[in-house]
Measured scan of single mutants.
Amino acid sequence: MSIQHFRVALIPFFAAFCLPVFAHPETLVKVKDAEDQLGARVGYIELDLNSGKILESFRPEERFPMMSTFKVLLCGAVLSRVDAGQEQLGRRIHYSQNDLVKYSPVTEKHLTDGMTVRELCSAAITMSDNTAANLLLTTIGGPKELTAFLHNMGDHVTRLDRWEPELNEAIPNDERDTTMPAAMATTLRKLLTGELLTLASRQQLIDWMEADKVAGPLLRSALPAGWFIADKSGASERGSRGIIAALGPDGKPSRIVVIYTTGSQATMDERNRQIAEIGASLIKHW
């Protein structure tokens, strides 16, 4: 058993032996400061991975655009179909130039040979490839079927209504393609630790998130040596930015963190910096 498999397999085991986890309101002070700095709403939640207890939250039940963070949920739905014998990670999917949409750094290189379902999930999560996400959405029946999958998990909040890139429109008060921090954190925890997916599929999902290559300026920039993080970021119109993550010290995840912001006029660099500073406060007061 690899170190990674050891880590995921023991998450339920550690729940019975973990020390009490204490919240630190200092992080919420930073979240509120980020709102002031960005001139935008910020949603935040910090969840204990083992118990599911909410440690801190700010606007946990307000809607925010999901942006590309939905791609983790999408690959969770794909893995659920794999577990049920309805899909194979090794199945190759062929597509054409007409299928390519904006920001497809991986799929645009494989027009001649296509990509496997496994490769598409990797591209969608680690590189946020939009065509990969659309191709995967097609395999499960489209955005409405992803919403149905989430409903069956008990998440009646999170919804996907459109495809890439239209889902990134982020119109104020538009509930399409949105979630709430509390709903996203709970759903992510179920995917990573619950019985919905097999152990192998849970491991695969967290491996893809751990290999994320496009979230460096966010929480990863504040991470001390030896800490673990598996994450997925997102960005969209109207100053929207977000990240969902499982992270913790000693090389294993122990908390879920979800951060969303929307409605800012700030630059992408400034949005990144504010999220990184929230992460730094979280780690300092861990």
Rank of each mutant, 00 (worst) to 15 (best):
S2R: 12
I3V: 10
Q4E: 15
Q4R: 14
F6A: 09
R7I: 11
V8H: 15
A9P: 12
L10Q: 07
F13T: 13
F13G: 08
F13C: 14
F14T: 15
A15E: 06
L19W: 15
H24Q: 08
D33G: 12
L38D: 07
A40Q: 07
R41K: 13
R41Q: 09
Y44C: 02
L49R: 02
G52D: 05
K53L: 11
I54N: 05
E56S: 09
S57F: 08
R59N: 08
P60C: 08
P60R: 09
P60N: 07
P60H: 14
E61R: 15
E61K: 13
M67T: 08
T69C: 02
L73M: 07
C75W: 07
A77T: 08
L79C: 05
V82R: 06
D83V: 01
A84E: 15
Q88E: 14
G90N: 15
I93C: 05
P105T: 07
V106I: 12
K109S: 15
I125M: 12
T126H: 04
M127I: 09
D129M: 00
L135F: 04
L137E: 02
T138S: 15
T138I: 10
K144A: 14
K144Q: 14
E145D: 12
H151C: 11
M153T: 10
D155N: 03
W163D: 05
E164A: 05
I171V: 13
I171F: 14
P172W: 09
D174I: 00
E175K: 09
T178G: 02
T179V: 00
T179D: 00
T179I: 03
P181D: 00
T186S: 15
T186M: 15
L188S: 05
G194V: 05
E195V: 05
L196V: 15
L197H: 04
S201A: 10
D207S: 14
W208S: 02
D212Q: 10
K213F: 08
G216A: 10
G216S: 09
P217L: 08
L218F: 02
S221M: 09
A222K: 15
A222G: 09
P224M: 01
G226Q: 07
G226F: 04
W227C: 03
A235D: 01
S240R: 02
G242H: 03
G242R: 02
I243K: 01
I244M: 05
A246K: 01
P249L: 03
D250V: 08
D250I: 07
K252W: 08
R255C: 03
Y260S: 02
S264G: 15
Q265E: 15
A266C: 12
M268R: 05
D269F: 10
R271T: 12
N272S: 06
I275R: 02
I275S: 02
A280V: 11
K284S: 11
H285T: 09
